[in-house]
Structure formats: C-alpha cells, structure tokens
Computed example of a mutant assay.
Amino acid sequence: MFREQRRKQAADKLAVGVEWRGTDDHVFTTGWGEPIHPDTVSSLIATVIKRYNSPAQGARPGQPLPHARLHDLRHVHATTLLLAGVPVHVVAARLGHADPSITLGVYAHVIRTAEASAAEIFAQAIGE
C-alpha cells in the first residue's frame, strides 16, 4: 500500500513539475506535495466509516464500525503493542515520546492489564 502511495506521489511530482512543494518525508500529501493537515485525514476516516456502516447499495454490515479519529489509531497501535509485551521504551520511541514516563502515564491501565496477565501466566507455570 505504501509503495503504491509513493508511486502516486512520484506521478504527481512529475505532473506538477517545478511547482512541486513537497519533500520525501510525508506519506500523504496534497496534489502539489504539501503535507495534508491531520484534521483532513480525520474527517476522511469519519466519512469512510459512515459509508461502510450505511452503504449506498447492499446490506448494512452486521457489526458496524464505531466512530474513530485518526488519533484513535495511534492509541490502538500503542495498546496493541503493550498488550503483546513490547517494552514500554520501544513503544515510547514509536510514538515519538521523549521519555517513556509519558507513555507510562497515558497507558498505565494497559500496562496493569498486561501485568495481571503475566501474573496469571506465572501462576500457571509454577502449577498454582
């Protein structure tokens, strides 16, 4: 998917020529290469969810998607990594947190859940 997006950007860059304003460090850009504002992407996510939940044709899904923002995907990513046992300092680096204590503060509830699971696994391992 990202390779296809990069190909589309390369085509846009060729089409726009010297008016291209972008750099190579943004995945999603306007047609002239500037970064897309995050609110634009968030509103597009809401539109996609709405169309999925209420399609113009065909049946509605059995399980509709809940409202979500772009920022919610960040939380899903961090939560999934932490519950999978990825160390907090690694998750903090992926999120761009300067200090893992920021990650610990935001995701303390997830870490407590993971700790409870670890305790249960340990108890089973020692035969309790």
Score class of each variant (00 low, 15 high):
2 F>H: 11
3 R>T: 10
3 R>W: 06
4 E>H: 10
4 E>W: 08
6 R>T: 03
6 R>E: 11
7 R>Q: 10
7 R>S: 07
8 K>L: 14
8 K>Q: 12
9 Q>M: 13
10 A>T: 06
10 A>G: 02
11 A>S: 08
12 D>W: 15
12 D>R: 12
12 D>G: 00
13 K>P: 01
13 K>W: 07
14 L>H: 04
15 A>V: 05
15 A>S: 11
15 A>M: 11
16 V>S: 08
18 V>E: 15
19 E>Q: 12
19 E>M: 09
20 W>E: 08
21 R>M: 13
22 G>I: 07
22 G>L: 10
23 T>S: 15
25 D>V: 08
26 H>A: 09
26 H>D: 11
28 F>R: 10
29 T>A: 06
29 T>F: 06
30 T>K: 04
31 G>Y: 09
32 W>C: 04
32 W>T: 15
33 G>E: 06
34 E>N: 11
34 E>K: 15
34 E>T: 15
35 P>N: 08
36 I>N: 09
37 H>G: 04
38 P>R: 13
39 D>V: 09
40 T>R: 14
41 V>E: 04
41 V>F: 13
41 V>W: 06
42 S>T: 15
42 S>P: 02
43 S>K: 15
43 S>R: 15
43 S>F: 09
44 L>F: 10
45 I>M: 10
45 I>R: 00
46 A>L: 04
46 A>G: 13
47 T>Q: 13
47 T>I: 03
48 V>D: 01
50 K>T: 05
51 R>I: 00
54 S>G: 01
55 P>R: 11
57 Q>W: 11
57 Q>I: 10
57 Q>K: 15
58 G>D: 06
58 G>M: 09
59 A>I: 01
60 R>H: 11
60 R>E: 14
61 P>R: 03
62 G>T: 07
65 L>V: 10
66 P>S: 11
66 P>K: 11
67 H>K: 10
68 A>E: 03
68 A>N: 07
70 L>T: 05
70 L>Y: 12
70 L>G: 05
71 H>I: 07
71 H>S: 11
71 H>E: 07
73 L>N: 04
73 L>R: 07
74 R>A: 09
75 H>K: 08
75 H>M: 09
75 H>Q: 07
76 V>H: 09
76 V>A: 11
77 H>C: 14
77 H>M: 14
77 H>A: 14
79 T>C: 06
79 T>D: 03
84 A>K: 14
85 G>M: 05
85 G>V: 02
85 G>F: 06
86 V>K: 08
86 V>T: 15
87 P>Y: 02
87 P>T: 01
89 H>Y: 14
92 A>M: 02
93 A>M: 04
93 A>I: 00
94 R>P: 02
94 R>A: 10
95 L>A: 06
96 G>R: 10
96 G>F: 10
100 P>Q: 03
102 I>P: 02
105 G>K: 09
106 V>G: 03
106 V>E: 03
106 V>N: 03
106 V>D: 02
107 Y>E: 04
108 A>R: 05
109 H>Y: 01
109 H>M: 03
109 H>L: 02
110 V>H: 01
111 I>S: 02
112 R>G: 00
113 T>S: 13
115 E>I: 02
117 S>P: 00
118 A>M: 07
119 A>T: 04
119 A>R: 11
120 E>H: 12
121 I>C: 00
123 A>C: 01
123 A>S: 14
124 Q>H: 12
124 Q>F: 04
124 Q>L: 11
125 A>Q: 08
126 I>R: 15
